[in-house]
C-alpha cells in the first residue's frame, strides 16, 4: 500500500481549475476596487485598500498559477476489483481506501467549465463518506462509473 495510486486525472483539469479560479479572483478584485472607492469617500487611510490589493495579488498568483498545478500533480487514483484508492491534497497529502463492498452509489457530474474540456467529476459515496475523483475525461468517467457500480454490486451485508 505504500505505492501511490497509478492513474492521473486529465491534464486539462489544470486549465479548467484555472478558469474557475480566475472567475473567483475577478469577483474578489471587484471587492478590492470597491474598497478603494469606499475608502475615497470615507477618508480611509490609503494603506487599507493597498494592503487588500497586495493580499489579492499574492492570493491570485497562488490560486491561479501554483495551486491548480500542485493539485493536479497530487491527484492520483486507481480502481481495483476490491477497492478504490485515491490520493489528493496540497499541504496535507491523504490517501484513501474505499472497499467496493462499502460503495453505495457513484455519480458523475459536469459543470459548464468542465463541459468545455469534455471532463466530468466522479464521486463515490459510502454510507458514511463521499470521495471524489475530479476532472476525468468524460467517456472515461462514464466507463469508470459503470465499472464501479458493477463491482459494487455485491451481496448486501447490512450497510
Amino acid at each position: 500500500m505504500r505505492q501511490p495510486p497509478q492513474h492521473r486525472i486529465a491534464e486539462d483539469a489544470i486549465k479548467a481549475w484555472r478558469i474557475t479560479e480566475v472567475i473567483v479572483m475577478v469577483i474578489l478584485l471587484l471587492l478590492v476596487i470597491a474598497s478603494f472607492i469606499v475608502g475615497h469617500f470615507f477618508d480611509w487611510a490609503l494603506w487599507i485598500p493597498l494592503t487588500a490589493l497586495a493580499v489579492w495579488g499574492v492570493l491570485a498568483y497562488l490560486m491561479i498559477f501554483v495551486i491548480p498545478l500542485v493539485r493536479w500533480r497530487r491527484w492520483r487514483y486507481e480502481v481495483f476489483d476490491q477497492e478504490i484508492y485515491v490520493q489528493h491534497g496540497i499541504l496535507i497529502v491523504s490517501r484513501t481506501l474505499v472497499p467496493m463492498i462499502r460503495v453505495q452509489h457513484v455519480d458523475t457530474k459536469q459543470g459548464p467549465i468542465l463541459k468545455r474540456f469534455n471532463l466530468s467529476n466522479l464521486t463515490v459515496s459510502t454510507a458514511a463518506t463521499i470521495h471524489e475523483i475530479p476532472a476525468l475525461p468524460q467517456e472515461e468517467a462514464a466507463a469508470l462509473r459503470d465499472q464501479i457500480s458493477e463491482l459494487a454490486r455485491v451481496d448486501e451485508d447490512d450497510v
Binding site: 491534497g89 499541504l91 496535507i92 497529502v93 491523504s94 490517501r95 484513501t96 481506501l97 474505499v98 472497499p99 463492498i101 462499502r102 459510502t126 454510507a127 458514511a128 463518506t129 470521495h131 451485508d157
Partner: peptide
C-alpha cells in the same frame, strides 16, 4: 474490519 467504511492516511510535509 467489515464495518469500516473508508480508511485514510494523511500526511503533511
Amino acid at each position: 474490519h467489515n464495518r469500516i467504511q473508508a480508511f485514510e492516511k494523511r500526511q503533511s510535509i
